[in-house]
Design a protein around this nucleic acid. Structure first.
Lengths: 350, 350
DNA sequence: TTGAAAGCGATACCAC
DNA sequence: GTGGTATCGCTTTCAA
């Protein structure tokens, strides 16, 4: 309950507060000795006293004086989205090892909430920001930049901005999904997407359209854009599937996990069956993909790599040691054919 | 880039820093006026200047001086576990509205990491802790308590400790699952659990055993405990299922989502089928449960309520306005029979 | 209503 | 190697 300060330690150890500060901040050198300009014996005594008294650094004070907080913020649209949850966990892990504390938050696809969150994070003196931005988030984030807080975009791009980015080539992801269906012999391929307008989706849409066009199937392109709201989306997919057989649709690309679930639901509701009535290529990861028979082909993002590169880039930006070209990282998505369970996953056939 | 301090605002507005501090900390009264001992005109002027200059409070300084941080920490075993991700998101949301910042972290079922995390959080002056503890986490958490940081346990209990708790009645959950299978006419019911030893699981195990015993099926109790490691667990379930038909097993209780997935995988690998070969009652939520035909009965926890009550309890503990009896909240799990998709969920039949 | 001044606990700078 | 001391930006008495 009592607070032990650096002064208490100094008094008890018979040294100055300066020395205590030095010792408490010294990193372990590789020789097992502290690398700081302090007599090893003195250092040992300070360490011993600090431990005995139960000294703990007051980060608020350190942060106030030094201007550094050793914390970063990660803002995604929804912490409970498994994709983001996974990324967050990875980032937290990496950051932790690097001595950084991470503050997470969800913007809920709301630019106003994003702006508010950025203000909060700025108030917390975070040293960097990793953000999966919602539509219209430019302004909120530029505020952070203007204050000198480096920002790295993940998952979605904000075109025309100068943030760091670690993105997945979603155009390519759309192409891969479409081409796989070509390989399966399908031509009447449709895609169901949201009206959301985030680049992760619009790029997948573009990849689909492009692949169709390149295959001479421009007239077969059918891109449905439904509402993001869960209930409306669910109904929307049912509507789309209802008449799909009539118009000869053979396969659907469902570019998010949720859309895939709405797809399976629609099958159930309409008494249809995968793969008898329609074939699918889905996105992200889901137990359902793996457990289905046959296993559902799906395009996944390199989650670990996203987390790694995003944190590394942000660190470099904080340290100011980043080249312009390093600021734009693009990773490739992969088509997964085998399930995670039972059989070993087979990677993309391209 | 420049930092605007309370002093700059004071100078520019021609008032003292005290007044600026008052104004910046004033809450809006219900009459739309700021409730602070400041002349409304002065306040308005200060507000205007603060906005014009782009003033932002330095939390480190405020926290150092006031001793309050307006932040809390949530530590779960795995941020990417959907159950925890959902809880975290809810807590973050509630806390945010209440002016609290949340720091999340994963203990990875490791008491040493938990201890380290607690130290970190203490260093950040968090005002409270919400923790889903791993086995052996008592000591780490008692450290927080000894420093005066209120701690609330969720999901798992640490028996014999004096923390606040918001738990689910997992014994009851185990009973419900078992009884439902009785209703279906099954008696040869087995359960597959982990060797982990966390109370959420051991309580479910006890509920199962108790229900079996009460039904006069004591001799039919078959409780398998497998390794937590994913590969070993996967193989373990396959082994258990392999000979299950021979020994007449009719149904399995799979008390976590992951165990359920291993179950479905084992069915696939062995060429078995739900519900032809075995019936299941699973736990938590999964798209797979809803999309399966028939829909898989599963026991869910009241996630929103857990988040609500945990935060509320922690707040009360921070404020010191909590009765002893309020410190132990127990919520009920529910059996879900209908799927989330298509059909409306039917609640427990008990 | 308003303001002066005393810290909160660390770090950074400069002397020794 | 070591120590004195001036801050960092804010909240908080206490007086006026």
């Amino acid at each position: 309950m009592k607070k032990v300060t650096i002064r208490d330690v100094a008094r008890e150890a018979g040294v100055s507060v300066t020395l205590v500060s030095f010792v408490m901040n010294a990193k372990m050198g590789k020789d097992g000795r502290l690398d700081c300009p302090v007599n090893p014996n003195t250092a040992a005594r300070v360490l011993e006293v600090a431990k005995r008294l139960g000294y703990r650094r007051n980060n608020a004070a350190a942060s106030l004086r030094s201007g550094r907080s050793h914390s970063i913020a990660v803002i995604v649209s929804d912490l409970a989205n498994p994709l983001f949850a996974e990324i967050c966990r990875k980032i937290e892990n990496i950051a932790y090892k690097d001595g950084y504390t991470v503050i997470f938050a969800s913007s809920e696809e709301n630019p106003d909430k994003l702006a508010h969150l950025v203000e909060t994070m700025v108030g917390y003196n975070v040293e960097g920001l990793i953000v999966a931005p919602c539509l219209g988030g430019e302004k909120a984030l530029e505020r952070a930049t203007s204050i000198g807080i480096p920002t790295v975009l993940i998952d979605r791009d904000l075109p025309g901005t100068d943030f760091g980015r670690v993105l997945v080539d979603n155009v390519d992801a759309g192409v891969i999904a479409t081409k796989y269906l070509f390989h399966q012999g399908f031509g009447k391929i449709e895609m169901i997407s949201y009206k959301l307008g985030v680049t992760s989706l619009t790029d997948r849409e573009y990849g689909y359209s492009k692949a169709m066009e390149d295959a001479g199937l421009k007239d077969e392109i059918k891109l449905h854009r439904i509402e993001y709201d869960a209930d409306l989306a669910k109904k929307g997919v049912i509507e789309i599937f209802r008449d799909a057989s009539k118009r000869g649709a053979e396969a659907f690309i469902l570019p998010t996990k949720k859309l895939a679930m709405y797809g399976f639901n629609a099958l159930n509701v309409l008494g249809l069956n995968f793969p008898k009535n329609f074939s699918f290529v889905c996105f992200d990861e889901s137990d359902t993909y793996d457990i289905s028979k046959p296993v559902i082909p799906h395009v996944v993002q390199p989650i670990s790599e996203i987390a790694d590169k995003a944190f590394a880039l942000m660190r470099k930006m904080i340290d100011g040691t980043v080249d312009q070209e390093e600021r734009n990282v693009t990773l490739k998505a992969k088509l997964i054919l085998g399930g995670r369970f039972g059989v070993d996953p087979t990677e993309a056939i391209f």
